[in-house]
Simulated assay, not measured.
Amino acid sequence: MSAISLRGLSKHFADVRAVDDLDLDIAEGEFFSMLGPSGSGKTTVLRLIAGFETPTSGRVLLGEHDVTDRPPNRRDVNTVFQDYAIFPHMSVRQNVEYGLRVKKVPRDERRKRALEALATVRLEGYADRRPHQLSGGQRQRVALARALVNRPQVLLLDEPLGALDLKLRREMQIELKQIQREVGITFVFVTHDQEEALTMSDRIAVFNEGRIEQLATPVELYERPASSFVAGFVGTSNLLQGEVSRTLLGEDGTFVIRPEKVSMVAPDRAPDGDDGTCVARGVVREVVYLGATTHSVVDLDAGATLTVSHQNSDRSIDAALERRDHPVVLTWQRDNLVSLAGSGPGASPEEETA
């Protein structure tokens, strides 16, 4: 059964179609992410599910119940926001209990449930602290506990990690996924950060201009993007099209290949390409050292610019940095090409998922 079903859902603001005739099913117990740039419609969809916005047309169902016309407090969902909205004058336990107090849950019961929720988010022993005594990650967990204590059917998360620093954000990505597995609640997570979505999600919907460009698992989304928009937004992609694809591949169309699937060798070590290997000559324009990896930007003789990524080792770093302005040969396997036009040497997204 679907935890959430959206049918023909649209939301217009004057002449802007923020959400445009959307159909979507989210399964029970799923960690589902809505990914896209600012203004793509993902947050508006979340607000429509929560009841904070009224749809222009279409229906919102939670399980078998049509909740389109219900106010937020009559929907079995809770929302965690980026700013946490924790009451500074209350203790951690009082913050977590707040929703239960509103529902007039007896004192002993709400205290028990609050402590259980704090244990779920790994905050045992923090019940009597005030929010100003907590780190950013701990405050985020308090907001999560406050949402979980109500035992909602669906938990909506609106970019809750956006205010955290990079290291803490990555730690919380793993924590959130583990918590979701333990409690078994459907999580709907909104983000513009592709790493967050790829790390945590069971499935991801990539939004663009109020519509879903592609709905897939993280692996399918990254390895088999369905459009040039998805290929460019999720990770780094190299596009080969027009005259470049005709010259290098002998075929018309638009093809994508990820930087880590491209190898770079000196011109005197270039393969002949008879074994299905694609070969392209060019000159290294720039080398970008990123710690664990190095990206080399190569201007091809055929006219395109490709990025090559490789893991750094003790011997490879200096050699990579010295390649700037030098001629090189790029190679890749034809099987690693993905056709965005549905034909060509690489399998199309539709063909590979059939």
Score class of each variant (00 low, 15 high):
Thr217Pro: 08
Met200Gln: 05
Val16Arg: 06
Val287Trp: 06
Glu116Met: 10
Ala347Pro: 09
Leu62Pro: 14
Glu286Tyr: 07
Val105Asp: 08
Glu159Trp: 01
Lys11Pro: 00
Gly125Thr: 08
Ala341Gln: 04
Arg151Asp: 15
Thr277Glu: 15
Ser91Arg: 07
Leu6Glu: 10
Glu64Trp: 04
Ala197Val: 01
Ile212Pro: 00
Thr54His: 12
Leu198Trp: 15
Lys112Trp: 15
Ala50Cys: 13
Ala304Gly: 15
Pro327His: 05
Val288Leu: 13
Glu260Met: 00
Ala341Cys: 05
His326Ile: 00
Leu306Trp: 12
Arg324Asp: 00
Val154Tyr: 04
Arg246His: 14
Phe207Met: 15
Val297Ala: 11
Asp83Ser: 15
Ser343Met: 02
Ala114Phe: 07
Pro88Trp: 07
Leu306Thr: 09
Ile212Arg: 01
Leu239Lys: 03
Leu62Gly: 13
Lys177Trp: 13
Gln194Thr: 08
Ala292His: 10
Ile204Pro: 00
Phe52Ala: 13
Arg101Cys: 12
Ser227Ile: 07
Ala117Pro: 03
Val206Pro: 01
Gly344Asp: 06
Arg111Lys: 11
Ala117Trp: 01
Ala341Leu: 00
Val77Gln: 05
Trp332Leu: 04
Gln82Thr: 07
Glu64Leu: 05
Lys167Gly: 14
Arg74Tyr: 11
Glu30Tyr: 12
